[in-house]
Design a protein around this nucleic acid. Structure first.
Lengths: 205, 205
DNA sequence: AACTATACGGAAGAGCATTCCGTTACGCAA
DNA sequence: TTGCGTAACGGAATGCTCTTCCGTATAGTT
């Protein structure tokens, strides 16, 4: 797992939506704490899942809970900040794939990557659909960044007559995210297998 | 929504897994309370969803929380008791359909019914996959009753060459249950549409 | 009517999210 | 370098919920 470089950190800090006043600078200790929280959250999310107790994260980061809530008022703010790079990378991969592969292959490969991304983050798929207001911004961020990406691939595949016309990028994103949820006591590959079958259903026009 | 008749009630009471000693009879007030809890739960589940606060149910039933937990130690016990008839009806429908319709039509019709059943119970799909130990028995009950039902339909459809061979009844049940989860702010028909596409993917062999 | 096991109710304990405010200490200006 | 204004901190406090436990009430039997 790669570490964050300084640029990444700045971007992540910007994303903590508290820079209410662009004229005033952020204090150095605040900056440090945001970084500590992001790294703690990344590690805790990997171990326990994205709905881990807040205290677990603050303890690891060595800050009080107040500090967590000040920087990330909603849980989704923290999740988005932690996953931002991976989401962006996922979106960029779409462009690369559409250049390298034939429309249908590009589409299925990308959905496969997306599946793996969502499936590997414990609890992410569940959080995306939880309905809990604490996670509200998460689906929005996902959609805003990934819908255009998938839409490009889907448009090309549709234009070349490989894909049915009555399905939108949004439909697919939402559905695959649903299908990514791990099922207790079942083979983890179940989800991938079933998503491949869903993709089969997208064929034709 | 139909009311419970006396036979239903008896069956439901039996299902409250506390009849530890078959020789000793259940007291009349206990019986009354179980019925009151079942009716309250049915009504609260319909309004708030299956993960509604326990107190809401006990208040409506006019009993203390202790009484709820004594009769239904896990939340899944209560849900199973409330949904038992509908689950059983869903299982029986499979037999009827396989007699009335051609294999492929019977299969798709049944999945459609199952979709509607799971989709209309608020929070049920989520609970099925929550991983919370409080819901543990729920997936088991679902599987034990619905897997054989679907397996009949699936076997027939496969035998007549309509369905691919690498998918089990369990696969389908789990996947459709995942896909039934309502997505906030989206057209409720989304799920049905996408499940129909998944079914398309099951075609062929 | 008395007795006993069954069942009741709700207080108590524990966990977690979120808020609030008195205290700390950063960074600018003199 | 010192002093001040304020950004930021920490964690106690609040509130909600689940779950357990036990003193009390009562159905059903003798």
């Amino acid at each position: 797992m790669r570490m964050m470089g300084p640029t990444d950190v700045d971007a992540a800090i910007q994303s903590a939506a508290l820079n209410r006043d662009a004229t005033r600078r952020q204090r150095a200790d605040a900056k440090r704490n945001v970084v500590a929280l992001l790294e703690a959250a990344k590690s805790v999310f990997a171990r326990t899942g994205v709905d881990a107790p807040a205290k677990e994260i603050t303890d690891l980061a060595g800050v009080g809970v107040g500090t967590l809530y000040r920087h990330f008022p909603r849980r989704s703010d923290l999740i988005v900040a932690v996953l931002q790079h991976e989401i962006d990378a996922c979106a960029r991969a779409a462009t690369a794939l559409s250049a390298e592969q034939a429309p249908w292959e590009a589409l299925t490969t990308w959905i496969g990557q997306f599946t793996e991304f969502v499936g590997t983050k414990r609890g992410l798929a569940t959080a995306l659909h939880s309905g809990d207001p604490a996670f509200d911004d998460l689906p929005r961020y996902f959609m805003e960044h990934l819908e255009p990406a998938l839409d490009g691939l889907l448009g090309a595949a549709r234009a070349s007559g490989h894909v049915r016309a009555d399905v939108t990028a949004r439909d697919i994103l939402l559905t695959v995210a649903l299908m990514c949820q791990p099922v207790r006591g079942e083979d983890p590959h179940l989800n991938e297998r079933m998503i491949r079958i869903f993709i089969e259903g997208l064929r034709h026009s």
